[in-house]
Design a protein around this nucleic acid. Structure first.
Length: 293
DNA sequence: CGCCCTGTTGGGGA
DNA sequence: ATCCCCAACAGGGC
């Protein structure tokens, strides 16, 4: 569930409750979470330090601790943070205790979530330099910048959007939504988009991410609640994430493809199929690029 | 009931 | 540069 908007929403809820507190204890129950570092290495690096700030880069949540110690958390697909839950969550991987008595659990059934450590801001910058590109909610994310990034890229535009090294934080469902809003087919080669299409895509990326921000939910405790954040932000989506549903704009049934190894939903009237490209040939042939499910 | 497929992610290897 | 597979688990379809 956690993509950039959800991570940002979690951060906004959590920051006022943890900033300035001292992280007394970090109990790592799953050694895989911080591998290859040992659990006790991570714990001893962060314990006793004050939380200077809780920030975010892409889909990473960053605990900026005293003396330039940084703990980068990634929730991957099923990770959740729960503050002072009524009872410890079933799939808890990490528990943090603060000096004011608050307990924060990292719950993650699938155990994909990760925790990494950066000692010093140089190490932090280096960590992200190789992984993350431009931050969508930043002044640098202009259509001119995006246009330059896409040039000479032959990969499908959806694969481009999902590549965190180009734009940080666009996940699968947000990529679909952005492309739908921009009227661009996910299989269009990135480098062949026109300037105006790129401009529409830039706006679509921002609009789709904003649609997921601050969706309902008074506390971070209800991120799993079907009536909470999840239902709420999906109501703000225009593209249906289910095959056969009617497009909200034109009524045509939504089609499901597989692009960049991910389920991909598209309205082929609002998002015209590419013509005269390898992608188009693959679509016609129904090869592995596009398969109905 | 069991088997198979899927999935809001990212990294490593081919 | 790109694609495929994998990590580990839950839930749904058959």
């Amino acid at each position: 569930m956690p993509e950039l908007p959800e991570v940002e929403t979690i951060r906004r809820h959590l920051a006022p409750r943890v900033e300035g507190r001292v992280l007394r204890e970090l109990e790592v129950m799953d050694a895989r979470w911080c591998s290859p570092l040992a659990a006790h290495e991570v714990a001893s690096a962060v314990e006793g330090r004050r939380v200077d700030a809780l920030t975010r880069r892409g889909k990473y949540l960053i605990w900026e601790l005293h003396d330039d110690v940084h703990l980068m958390m990634h929730l991957r697909m099923t990770g959740t943070l729960l503050l002072d839950p009524a009872e410890p969550p079933r799939h808890r991987r990490v528990r943090a205790a603060f000096d004011d008595g608050q307990q924060l659990y990292f719950d993650d059934p699938r155990r994909f979530g990760t925790g990494e450590l950066a000692l010093g801001s140089d190490a932090l910058d280096e960590f992200f330099a190789g992984r993350l590109g431009v931050e969508p909610f930043s002044p640098e994310f202009t259509s001119a910048h995006l246009y330059a990034l896409t040039r000479a890229r032959r990969a499908p535009i959806k694969a481009f959007l999902l590549d965190q090294r180009r734009i940080a934080g666009v996940g699968n469902i947000y990529a679909d939504e952005a492309l739908f809003r921009a009227g661009i087919h996910p299989l269009r080669p990135a480098g062949r988009l026109t300037r105006s299409q790129v401009a529409a895509l830039r706006d679509g990326v921002l609009a789709s991410l904003e649609a997921g921000l601050d969706a309902k939910g008074a506390s971070i405790d209800d991120f799993r609640d079907p009536d909470g954040v999840q239902g709420s932000f999906q109501d703000r989506f225009l593209i249906h994430l289910r095959e056969g549903e009617q497009c909200l704009v034109c009524g045509r049934p939504v089609r499901k493809l597989r692009v960049a190894g991910r389920g991909t939903y598209v309205c082929e009237r609002c998002q015209p199929r590419p013509r005269g490209t390898r992608a188009a040939a693959a679509l016609r042939g129904g090869a592995q690029v596009a398969q109905a499910t």
